[in-house]
């Protein structure tokens, strides 16, 4: 699952976009506006044990179970959605379930002689081995290949990360019963050295990203800041000044709070404009 398909898709490249800047931006803006303005049906909030479907043709999807009598019941407090044959319940609160390939922000909370243990807001700690955390200098440099692989000493690797350091990682492997293995090698990954990491409920993360990234784009545009939304409910932010960051944090909490409502993008936009005016933030 995961990584192969993701790689096979054309990777977005920064340079290629700059060429079609003006043409695309107009159409995009329209699309964004249209999306947020369209009236979404208000989805019903269901509760654990509630019968959400009795039609025998339907299949219990995520967050739902099928009873012996054919009724489908919810296991969460969440929003019911029927997609094709599947009845799903999207939980409104919950813990983060690690998925292979997810990008998460972890915090080093323990070290052993050979690995770092990272709190990734899941029920298990993530394991980051130095070999997955630091790029090796080129091996064999200056030696003929026949001399075999020359391994550089790595004893100081464990000192490169301190307790309490926050790292953007990707989940390499793991299962329900196994601690997830992480890597911090790769694009966008690595140690965070500036800004701030805030935490929200992981179930609200899709809303902070918004449909096709609309919310994140809105925040970046209006508040001139850098944001990285990790799947485990942590968000790295770095703004121009503390006032901007402060407003951004408040807005993110507002999105978290109102994640189940409709018309969120418009409301957030209006809120940011209003607050910027009040606080005199450019």
């Amino acid at each position: 699952m995961g990584i192969f398909e993701k790689r096979s898709k054309p990777l977005f490249l920064f340079s290629s976009v700059q060429n079609k800047k003006i043409v695309t931006c107009k159409s995009c803006k329209k699309k964004v506006k249209k999306m947020s303005a369209e009236n979404k049906p208000i989805r019903e909030i269901v509760t654990p044990g509630q019968v959400i479907a009795t039609d025998p043709g339907l299949i219990a999807g995520r967050g739902a179970i099928k009873e012996d009598n054919g009724q489908i019941t919810s296991v969460f407090v969440g929003l019911k959605e029927i997609r094709g044959k599947y009845v799903n319940v999207v939980p409104l609160n919950g813990l983060y379930n690690p998925q292979i390939g997810d990008k998460v922000i972890g915090r080093v909370i323990a070290k052993t002689p050979v690995k770092f243990l990272l709190d990734i807001n899941a029920k298990f700690l993530g394991i980051l081995k130095p070999s997955d955390a630091f790029k090796r200098p080129h091996q064999n440099r200056g030696y003929p290949k026949s001399m075999g692989t020359y391994r550089l000493p790595r004893e100081n690797d464990m000192d490169k990360l301190k307790m309490g350091d926050q790292i953007i990682c990707k989940i390499l492997s793991g299962s329900r019963t196994e601690e997830p293995a992480l890597t911090s090698l790769g694009q966008e990954l690595g140690l965070i050295t500036e800004g701030l990491v805030i935490a929200i409920s992981p179930t609200k993360i899709p809303r902070v990203i918004g449909k096709k990234g609309s919310m994140i784009a809105l925040l970046k545009n209006l508040l001139h800041c850098k944001i990285f939304v990790a799947q485990n409910g942590r968000i790295w932010i770095h703004g121009r000044n503390p006032e901007n960051e402060r407003l951004l944090i408040e807005v993110i909490y507002k999105i978290e709070r109102e994640a189940h409502t409709t018309g969120l993008t418009d409301r957030v936009k209006a809120y940011i404009l209003k607050e910027k005016k009040i606080r005199g933030i450019k």
């Binding site: 915090r107 709190d119 350091d165």
Partner: peptide, 13 residues
């Protein structure tokens, strides 16, 4: 809510 953990985040500090 900031992340609550006994190990203080260096970034936050």
């Amino acid at each position: 809510m900031m992340d609550i953990n006994e190990v203080v985040s260096n970034l936050e500090k």
